[in-house]
């Protein structure tokens, strides 16, 4: 009889074997789950990459049987609408977050607002479009970049708000107490100490929200609609006109029976994914450097 049991792993033992099999299965699951991402990226580069040229960024979309053409107006439209959305959602979200994290931490209104923001993150994006349709398009009587921007801002708001609250909370208590000890009012503490310290986290949140908004299609389908023309013409822009966007362009062109349009849909997807991945990876780097 041995004095000490045998601790070496022995795969002929059923328990060890079961453990081994399950481990292998999880590895397989994880790798399999990464396949779609790489498949998407690969196809985008192969099929979208061949249309990459200056024309893609400067030309208007082609008509049905045209050759060539680009997605210039859609890129501008996406930028304009995401810009409008950020102008609304960022100040709104951050001011509300300051209240939730600092001035009104445990008040009932803060609890309810926090809960509704969390619920809002799960609301289907198409409902933001439905709302903007009812509140803006039906009132102004036209599809417009403003309506699209408002729909997108609803999707950005909860993300901006919740991440800003989180990063304000992460600022150490002692820093605020030191500032209060110097005679700062709570608002001065906020502006001079807490907000600068919480900045990287808030920027991360805003970038993630922008990345999400840039890729959204559903809320734009019937708020901004689509347009074959530039939103800015001869130096003047009209925000109350139907506006093109990358996402809607991909959707519209994907269903067309013309090879030229389908190629452009792939190229537009590549541009969109590059934009979104750039924002995602940069925001990740910012939040990592903070730690």
């Amino acid at each position: 009889m041995k004095a000490t049991p045998d601790f070496t792993r022995n795969l002929t033992e059923p328990r060890a074997l079961k453990s081994f099999i399950l481990s292998t299965l999880t590895v397989a699951c994880t790798l399999l789950a990464c396949v779609p991402l790489f498949s998407v990226l690969y196809v985008l580069v192969i099929r979208g990459g061949k249309r990459f040229s200056l024309e893609l960024f400067t030309a208007l979309p082609p008509t049905a049987l045209d050759t060539g053409g680009g997605i210039g107006n859609a890129i501008v439209g996406t930028l304009v609408m995401v810009g409008i959305a950020s102008l609304i959602a960022v100040p709104f979200g951050i001011l509300a977050a300051i209240f939730l994290a600092e001035f009104g931490q445990d008040t009932r209104i803060a609890t309810i607002a926090r809960f509704s923001a969390k619920t809002m993150t799960g609301i289907p994006s198409i409902l933001a479009g439905v709302f903007a349709y009812a509140a803006v398009v039906m009132v102004t009587g036209t599809y417009s970049a403003v309506a699209g921007g408002i729909a997108l801002s609803l999707l950005m708001l909860p993300t901006v708000m919740l991440t800003a609250e989180e990063s304000i909370r992460m600022v150490p208590r002692i820093m605020r107490e030191a500032a209060v000890g110097m005679g700062c009012t709570p608002s001065q503490v906020m502006w001079k100490v807490t907000l600068p310290a919480a900045m990287p986290g808030m920027i991360t949140g805003v970038m993630l929200a922008v990345a999400r908004a840039a890729g959204e299609t559903a809320p734009l389908l019937f708020t901004a609609l689509f347009s074959d023309y530039w939103i800015f013409q001869g130096g003047a822009g009209d925000l109350m006109e139907p506006t093109a966007s990358l996402a809607v362009l991909i959707y519209n062109f994907s269903g067309m029976p013309f090879e030229n349009q389908i190629e452009l849909a792939w190229a537009a997807s590549l541009v969109l994914v590059l934009m979104v991945l750039f924002l995602n990876i940069t925001s990740r780097l910012i939040s990592q450097r903070k730690r």
């Binding site: 789950a33 990464c34 998407v40 196809v43 890729g215 991909i250 959707y251 979104v276 991945l277 990740r284």
Partner: peptide
């Protein structure tokens, strides 16, 4: 790295998944 890869799955816009779904 793996964790970031899985998270990036969520970053791809759904319309791009749609396009990928149709043709691939």
């Amino acid at each position: 790295v793996l964790k970031a890869t899985v998270e990036l799955l969520a970053a791809i816009p759904s319309v791009v998944y749609g396009l990928w779904g149709i043709y691939i």
